[in-house]
């Protein structure tokens, strides 16, 4: 078991990053931190995909002939898209945070909820 995990070290880190990201999202009262946590969670997924593409002794797939050993290009393409999606989400999330701050004067969820309940 341990050995199997050791040969798959990147995936172990993937699992850890998911856990850390999730923890920030669930627990942190700071809305900006929550968004950071979301990003940690997503980069964990990126690590999964990029690791899938890895091949021992391979090089980036830049070729005109197809000769040679290459990493799998497809996951790279997917993650390029996913990174852009991630930053887009972050931008919108932060805009929402700014909006919430304008309204309630805080970026901490507990404070905002308190303000809301006072209304």
């Amino acid at each position: 078991m341990i050995e199997a995990l050791f040969a798959r070290y990147n995936y172990v880190v993937f699992a850890l990053l998911l856990g850390i990201g999730l923890y920030i999202v669930i627990d942190d009262e700071n809305l900006v931190k929550k968004v950071i946590g979301l990003n940690v969670f997503q980069t964990g997924i990126f690590l999964f995909f990029i690791t899938v593409a890895v091949q021992d002794g391979a090089e980036p797939a830049v070729t005109s002939t197809g000769e040679g050993t290459f990493v799998n290009p497809l996951p790279h393409v997917l993650i390029l898209t996913a990174i852009v999606v991630g930053v887009s989400l972050t931008a919108l999330a932060l805009a929402l945070v700014v909006r919430i701050h304008e309204e309630y004067g805080s970026i901490r969820e507990d404070v905002v909820v308190e303000v809301l309940e006072r209304d």
Partner: peptide, 28 residues
């Protein structure tokens, strides 16, 4: 991990744009 395209994008978008966005948010 032999993913230079992703690496460059991550550096520009992840480390660059994202950090700027966060800092701008904090500044506001």
């Amino acid at each position: 991990l032999q993913a230079p395209d992703v690496g460059l994008t991550e550096a520009a978008v992840g480390a660059g744009v994202m950090t700027v966005l966060f800092l701008a948010t904090i500044a506001r």
